[in-house]
Amino acid sequence: MAETLRKMLATKAVLSVPGIYDGLSARLVDLAGFEAAFLSGACLSFARFGRPDLGLVSAAEVAETVAVIRERTPLPLIVDIDTGFGNALNVQRTVNTFERAGASALQMEDQLMPKRCGHMRGKQVISSGEMVGKIHAALDARHSEDTLIFARTDALGVNGFEDALERAERYLEAGADAIFVEAPTSLEQMQCIGERFGSRIPLIHNLVEGGRSPVQSARELEALNYRIALFPASLLHLLIPTAQNMLTQLRRDGHLEDLRNQMIDLSVVNELLGAEELLAKSKQYEYE
């Protein structure tokens, strides 16, 4: 799937990539017809652990999730590896482990641990030189050259726009397969990023509800010379208020009759997840 993703990024069309966090969300994205999925570190922290995106999830926990998702979908999978979970040597082990688990691309950022969501205040960044070393370490650690390494800089919100551009330039020169300047605050900044880098390397952008992005759609990103439109938390941002509404009604009324027409039932879930196919497959192993 890494080779497939690489070919997609060679075109000029923008790739819309929803964020996922488990087998069910992966299955839903696959069935909806998307061409790739993004394992969001934030959403994994939100959904599995009920924690904010503050670097609390371990590499082993993410790798386990990658393996679970890969079992449920053949889609190219971009995996958020935060800071690489340590120094350059840790990055190499992370790349080895996640590649074996089924990652197609690994997205690494230049934050200082403990990291936090890219749209939160209080971030810190490592030196650009240290990040360049980590990019080289990641590239050297790949088992397959088709596995993509994406480099994200969070420097804009820490050191300003010019430093973010300089870092992006260095990360491109280091061999990153895509560049991600996190949290631009204006359309002018995004135009500058697109004009400077868009013809040289695929550009990534986060479309986070409540974040700082000045654009809201994949079509706008395509016009700005970007190639990957990440919607990292959109699925959860819709599911959470829906779940809260259901729980409020259940607690208040003791039933869900008013919501029944909005709900699916167990048979639909089984159909969605392929229960009949599994049962049919099991019959070939039945012997008298």
Rank of each mutant, 00 (worst) to 15 (best):
S217A: 05
I135T: 05
E166C: 02
T147D: 02
L272Y: 08
V215K: 05
S213Y: 04
D140A: 10
E195T: 12
A155I: 01
T94G: 02
L256D: 12
A2E: 06
A243T: 14
A10W: 03
F34Q: 08
A60D: 09
L54I: 14
P76G: 01
M263C: 10
T242R: 11
R93W: 12
I78V: 15
E277L: 08
L112H: 15
L44I: 11
V208R: 04
L31A: 11
L203E: 04
P52K: 10
A88C: 04
E195A: 13
M263W: 00
A176V: 07
I149L: 07
L172I: 07
L5C: 04
R252H: 14
L139W: 01
A155H: 09
G160M: 08
L77D: 00
F180P: 10
G274L: 05
I179R: 08
L172A: 08
P241S: 01
Q191V: 15
I204F: 14
H119S: 05
M190Q: 12
D154R: 14
A32Y: 05
S128E: 08
V215S: 02
I240W: 06
E286L: 13
N87V: 08
E188Y: 10
I179G: 01
G19P: 08
I135V: 15
C192M: 14
V17S: 06
D110N: 10
G33H: 11
V79R: 05
Q262R: 11
G55M: 01
L203Q: 12
V29G: 06
V62S: 06
I201F: 03
D22I: 09
V208F: 04
G84T: 10
N87M: 08
Q284P: 00
